[in-house]
Amino acid sequence: MVDVNDSWTEIIKPKRGWFDVNLKEIWRYRDLILLFVRRDFVSVYKQTILGPLWLFIQPLFTTFIFYFVFNQIARISTDGVDPILFYLSGITLWNYFSDCFSKTSNTFVANASIFGKVYFPRLTTPISIVISNLIKLGIQVLLFVLIAIYQVVVNDADIQINSTIFLLPLLILLMAIMGLGMGILFSALTTKYRDLSFLLTFGIQLLMYATPIIYPLSFTSGKLHQLLSYNPITPIIENFRYSFFGIGTFDVGGLIYSTIFSISILFIGILFFNRVENKFMDTV
């Protein structure tokens, strides 16, 4: 029998090249991604009395806490925006990023029992997390709109929606890409050395305070202002608020910076993730 080398459909090798990323395979497993999304969504709220209502309660609680601590006690300005709407807008978008980041950051460790038994492209898991959180975000944006209408009608809050609102999908996409990229990069780095994972919660919290969530960018000045503008999430939050309230800055340059940063971090994340994907079972 003639052995034609080209007719092998697959070759298992010790090491995978850096750029040996099989995106076609992920597409072939798209049904699995959707089923993971469904599983995440259905399973989280089973056996809770309030069910998906928790999606509303979580951001509202945080908003009230921020309102009392930062607005009523610390008296930090919200640039003339209704404080409830100011905090809620920041939290809604920030939570999406932090959920994507923290939940994809332990992909390997959390799924070790499945990954140890059957092969499927491992990237399907973090992708499904980003998508299921997108649904959550959608519901929370709806909550934000409802609260905004309430505040405008009942409390005479000032809202100036402008045409930059059409950039909202881009802002969300950037958050998703950045959260996913940082999360999978992190998950790849923590398979061997777990030390980093202890810093994660702390790091995300720190990052939140380094992002204009509880204060407007205009509240800062000088070196601090400079520093905050290096944060690639800053332009996203600022532009989001601008499109709703007409305050702050609409910063095209910042958005371009965020876009380049997001795409690069996702690229680096995929490379590292792909690199450890076939070996991690030995070290996890």
Binding site: W8, T9, I11, I12, P14, Y119, M281
Partner: peptide
């Protein structure tokens, strides 16, 4: 394909 070999190859059709 749950884990990778240290050396050598496996060809599959």
């Amino acid at each position: 394909k749950v884990t990778a070999p240290s050396k050598g190859t496996i060809k599959i059709r």
